[in-house]
Write a protein that binds this DNA or RNA. Sequence first.
DNA 1: TTTAAAATCCCCCAATATGGGTGATTGATT
DNA 2: AATCAATCACCCATATTGGGGGATTTTAAA
Lengths: 211, 211
Amino acid sequence: MKKRITIIEDNASIREGFSAVLDTIEKYKVMNLYSNCEDALTNLDQDQPDVVLMDIELPGMDGIAGTIRIKKQLPNCIVLIITVLEDSEKVFRSLCAGAGGYIVKNSNLSEIVQNIDEALAGGAPMSLSIARMVVQSFRQQQDSPLTDREIQVLQSIAEGKSYSKIALDLYVSKETIRSHIKNIYRKLEVSSKADAIKIANSNKWVTGRSL
Amino acid sequence: MKKRITIIEDNASIREGFSAVLDTIEKYKVMNLYSNCEDALTNLDQDQPDVVLMDIELPGMDGIAGTIRIKKQLPNCIVLIITVLEDSEKVFRSLCAGAGGYIVKNSNLSEIVQNIDEALAGGAPMSLSIARMVVQSFRQQQDSPLTDREIQVLQSIAEGKSYSKIALDLYVSKETIRSHIKNIYRKLEVSSKADAIKIANSNKWVTGRSL
DNA sequence: TTTAAAATCCCCCAATATGGGTGATTGATT
DNA sequence: AATCAATCACCCATATTGGGGGATTTTAAA
């Protein structure tokens, strides 16, 4: 069964270039080419793509919003973001939107084909630097002024637990938790949960995520 | 300058196998082989490795704890986890510990070399399925019973903000926030911040992280 | 070994936050 | 016409929070 591909890219020559190359590949079938998300979305049911090559900068709805819409309608469709620059904010938002990979536009066409193959094989094609960024986003800071116990308490605070609940979970008195909090506030020079969480998050002292 | 590599792996034949192959490569210099983290750590200053190939199951200190120690001492050292199975919990904890990649042991030796090259070139070598897992960990759920506004409020709650603070941020009355909270609790069938956050986190309705 | 830091616990106090209830209004969307 | 989303209001009782004093024990470092 040929893999169905649609391309959303406003630059006509790039669009046609991708299409021309992909059309020569046996296992691919280019369904349609679009210069904007709106048109692509109206034809999504007919196209039923397995893979969408999506430009991120588009007139009207941008590639990120488009990705969200596509994934909502076709959850198993793999959306690969094609872009010129590796803007970390856009990468992040694309991944949150459900993009299956993030590949750079200036790669040569054979690389693009490789990337599509990789995505279809169950992978997540990314440039080296993006892969590094993504992996490093998990990295927790080692150098924190807080002790392990304080981090543990702050983590619980970030989970929305009350002092009493934390005390129960850690098998200590509520007063102990209050002490830890006071020390945390003093060290971070804040005086509220929200401020402490903000600092802990930006420094990655607390997780908030899993695989 | 040759890249300095150390190998930590308790299985002698695998350890020697890696070493033998890597030693034939011009650009690499295998500094030392260890069967446990403890020995490797005592020699870390002498070895000064650019790359550590780290087994995850080890006698004594395991590979994850070892990774944390190594990164603390040599922050620029790249630790590549080598393992037989892709346990998502271990993958996650390895990445949090600062691992630069996660490669499977049964790959053939030329793949290992490729992976090391990729890591040194600024990438994050991973198997296809792990890359997919990692990327999907960013994915936010589209199907939530909550409205956009409610998600927004819940997100703020997860950031530790009080109702009043949220009200200020969203330019509405505190009573409005309370209304949203009540609706959120009703929809999620909970009656506390902590429970609501737990559900929102496990369903990835809130972010909590960036790149 | 002296010192410092971490982790544990206790009391007081006042202001704020929270959760539940019962409403109402406006504007979309269907 | 009916539903839902978003907005706002008031009542009430309890829980939580932040800040101020302390204290003890264990552990780690100087």
